[in-house]
Write a protein that binds this DNA or RNA. Structure first.
Length: 558
DNA sequence: ATAGGGTTAG
């Protein structure tokens, strides 16, 4: 008797619930329902109380809110009946641990766990699993790992749910590799993975952009004839679509329909977008129609995809029509519509209209985000209005809109085009000083500008500064050699090639190939031929035994 | 138990 009195739940668990009817009608505790009465009734029926509670709760999928448990323990019905209260607490402990786990209330969770231990309540498989789930939800994955090990060493071994919870934990930490290991360990331990195991892993792979693994997990599910939940299809189709494999995505979609699995708006939208991006706008529109005839209502994302697709394929008038349709039909208009349309107009040279749309956003109370600024700035720089673009750049800052690496890239490119090289360089420095990480694209723009103004060395120096920042632009040298060859600065291209090889930055053979291809592409077939049939770049000079490569420079040394 | 679809630079 004293045991229970001593470990009564802390009073703060009991929110001011003055009478039972309030508890019953509180939406937090389900709809006004007979289950609370029923449970209280079961408490009187002390003979088979636990069993009856189990059956009742299981049958109606009832999860006891902690407040309710506390309430019952403090209730008049149990006053003086400590044995019943204690038995009820034993029985409810699992439920409590589960609730506190998913609510992220670690103190309370451990309180219950300790009371169980103190009172000699043996944890069941469910208790362990709920505890694991609580710990994982609270991101205490290492603690969950320890519980897992205790289980493996004890008489209650981990089951599918335990494994799934552990896998979920690793996935939450981004340790997909470890999650995969745990998953494979299941087979060894003769625990059959279920659809939750697969789905958890697929979700993690999808989020990492590893669509291939996502797909092979799906295929494994098919082979094992597991039931495939709709979300698995979403992930597989979404992944294929993002990979540009619209046809494959569509095939999986048809598979899904054949199995009469219910599709959803997101899947249709992903397919429409994928077809639009692969340049097949007609097919995209066909799926759009099919979606509607299948009884799905396109939303602002679907319309956004359609508008963007039409803009990208130069069908601006149709895009504007859809845009107007959305405005008239209460489809939420957002900045994505505007950025697509402004970009479309800008690329078509209709800058005035683009500017008008940009201003319209203010009227409509739509925030001008960095995408919208960027596309308009791009449109302005490309139509010779770089100073207007710079004004917008300033306005962005005043508006508190993030200037991104895209913004800088667009402007740097524009300034170089106008031969305002110093300003371009200054902008690059500003970007670095603001802590914005450059990308391969941004360096490409910078190095092209510098190479064309004869500052190849400067470009190489800046490239060297990028490595410590963890930025390694792909094909940086290749791009620069290409640019130089294209404008006929063969001598500088060769000097650059020698510099790269001398400093051991690249394998001589690769640079040789790059230079040959660059010369060919630039229409200088003769020099390309000459380089190909010589030992320049890889061979040794006429002294033979002296290990010195023949300089690329000698190519033009006639 | 939960998430899954769209916009910008070279």
């Amino acid at each position: 008797m004293w045991v229970f009195t001593a470990s009564l739940p802390p009073p703060e668990w009991v929110q001011p619930v003055s009478d039972l009817s309030e508890l019953i009608t509180d939406p937090k505790y389900l709809q006004p329902s007979p289950w609370v009465h029923q449970i209280l009734k079961l408490l009187d029926n002390s003979g088979n109380m636990e069993h009856n509670l189990d059956v009742y709760c299981h049958k109606f999928l009832i999860r006891l809110p902690p407040n309710f448990v506390a309430f019952v323990l403090h209730s008049d019905q149990l006053r003086g009946q400590f044995d019943v209260a204690l038995r009820f607490f034993y029985w409810a402990a699992n439920s409590l641990i589960r609730s506190f786990g998913s609510l992220g209330m670690v103190e309370e969770l451990l309180w219950v766990w300790r009371r169980m231990k103190e009172n000699g309540i043996e944890p069941s498989l469910y208790t362990y699993n709920f505890l694991m789930n609580g710990l994982v939800n609270l991101m205490f994955v290492e603690s969950a790992e320890q519980v897992f090990e205790v289980m493996q060493g004890g008489k209650i071994g981990p089951d599918v749910v335990t494994y799934n919870t552990m896998i979920k934990g690793y996935c939450k930490l981004g340790k997909t590799q470890k999650a995969m290991q745990k998953f494979r360990e299941m087979e060894v331990r003769n625990v059959e993975p279920d659809k939750v195991s697969y789905l958890t892993l697929m979700q993690a792979c999808y989020s990492e952009g590893d669509f291939d693994s996502c797909l092979s997990l799906y295929q494994e599910m098919v082979e094992k004839e597991l039931e495939i939940p709709p979300h698995a299809y979403s992930l597989v189709i979404g992944g294929l679509c993002k990979d540009g494999k619209s046809v494959e995505g569509y095939a999986v979609f048809e598979n899904m329909m054949r199995k009469s699995c219910k599709a959803n708006v997101a899947i249709y939208t992903a397919l429409i977008d994928s077809y639009a991006k692969s340049g097949n706008m007609e097919e995209a529109l066909r799926i759009f129609d099919r979606m509607k005839s299948d009884g799905f209502e396109p939303d602002e994302v679907t319309f956004g995809v359609i508008v963007n697709g039409l803009c990208k394929s130069g069908r601006l008038e149709e895009a504007m029509e859809y845009f107007e349709f959305c405005k008239l039909n209460n489809v939420a208009i957002n900045a994505v519509f505007y950025s697509s349309l402004i970009d479309g107009l800008g690329k078509a040279g209709r800058v005035d209209e683009a500017e008008k749309l940009f201003e319209e956003m203010v009227e409509k109370g739509c925030t001008q985000d960095s995408y919208c600024y960027n596309v308009l700035i791009d449109a302005l720089t490309k139509s010779g209005k770089i100073d207007e673009a710079l004004v917008l750049f300033k306005r962005m800052e005043d508006d508190g809109c993030d200037q991104t690496v895209y913004t800088y890239t667009i402007l740097i490119s524009g300034l170089f085009r106008e031969h305002r090289n110093e300003e371009a360089l200054k902008l690059w420095d500003t970007m670095i000083n603001k802590g914005i990480t450059p990308t391969a694209a941004s360096f490409r723009v910078l190095s092209t500008g510098l190479c064309l103004s004869g500052k190849v060395v400067r470009a190489c120096m800046i490239l060297d500064e990028l490595a410590p920042m963890g930025v390694i632009p792909e094909n940086a040298f290749e791009d620069m050699i290409n640019v130089l060859c294209k404008v006929g600065r063969i001598e500088q291209a060769c000097k650059l090639a020698d510099g790269i090889v001398d400093r051991g930055r690249e394998i001589p053979g690769r640079i040789r190939t790059v230079l040959i291809n660059a010369l060919r592409k630039a229409g200088n077939a003769d020099l390309a031929m000459k380089l190909m049939h010589s030992k320049i770049g890889i061979g040794y000079d006429r002294m033979g035994s002296i290990k010195r490569r023949v300089k690329f420079r000698s190519l033009i040394d006639n």
